[in-house]
Design a protein around this nucleic acid. Structure first.
Lengths: 151, 151
DNA sequence: GAGAGATACCTGCGCTGTCAACTACTGCGC
DNA sequence: GCGCAGTAGTTGACAGCGCAGGTATCTCTC
């Protein structure tokens, strides 16, 4: 039985990571949509811009942080601009670069959404783990996110 | 500074989970696509069918396992049927149910793909963690995936 | 200062998934 | 047996993202 290649332990370990993320993000997305009109993707983008110096980020930098391709980042910013949460600003020192800059409306929106997201996070994430587990999980995920080259 | 609501620790902890999954799944998806023609989603679906009794699962059950809506599950099975990896079979005891059943071609495909996926998993996932960390990560993610109701 | 290669962004196209509404079937209570 | 809530699956309309390829700009080398 242990030799069934379809039931390898390593695959199920990774599968837990996938499933945990998908279930949590679905919960958070639905809640945010219902109560703020923001998808979890929009919320994340606005949050990242709000935490950045001058509330702005080059489009590629935003895409890198969110694990999007450059095309995906362009279109995400398109939509946020249409919604009035972001503006495109020319970079004075590199004409290839477009800054995506959080507007006051965007900042207000994301600030309001944080309350809801924190409540959800407490309910479905933080409360499931001890402080020690949370620390350890963070450390481990950090390494997975940015792996060291050697085996 | 610690009072900046945009930089709450709980949000970044969850953010690590999101980012780890997105980066890993992108790596795995690209590799699988290039070397087997299967997306990570297709691979996962075929794997789940292959591990199930009689290599089949009700469409809704497959969707639940993969965290898809019923509509998403229907369409995924549509595509897998078109590709010849799966067939739809009527359930003799409940006429609402359609079994999605792995074909021989599907089994052969997923079996070949496993080798590649395991190599990638070792390189980017397993090798980053000690055995103890892997066990603990699994236990913690298991709880997140299927949370207990109370806080 | 000209050319080569890298980088930032945009766009056409196709794939994948959601939502909401719908049909078909089941099983329960009466 | 009849009606009705619940469940399984399908479908149309549509949003979101990747890929591949394009343009503009920058930078390094000679």
């Amino acid at each position: 039985m242990a030799s069934d290649p379809l039931a390898d332990d390593r695959i199920t370990a990774y599968g837990r990571l996938v499933e945990a993320h998908r279930r949590l993000s679905r919960i958070f997305d639905r809640r945010l949509r219902a109560e703020t009109g923001l998808s979890d993707t929009w919320f994340e983008a606005l949050l990242r811009l709000g935490r950045s110096p001058d509330r702005q980020l080059a489009i590629t930098e935003l895409g890198d942080q969110m694990v999007l391709t450059s095309g995906g980042a362009t279109r995400l910013v398109d939509r946020l601009v249409d919604a009035g949460y972001v503006t495109r600003e020319a970079c004075p020192t590199d004409r290839r670069v477009q800054w995506a800059r959080l507007t006051d409306a965007g900042l207000a929106k994301v600030t309001a959404a944080i309350e809801i997201h924190l409540a959800d996070l407490d309910e479905h994430f933080t409360s499931q783990l001890t402080t020690a587990e949370l620390d350890q999980l963070g450390a481990v995920l950090d390494r997975l996110r940015d792996p060291s080259p050697a085996g």
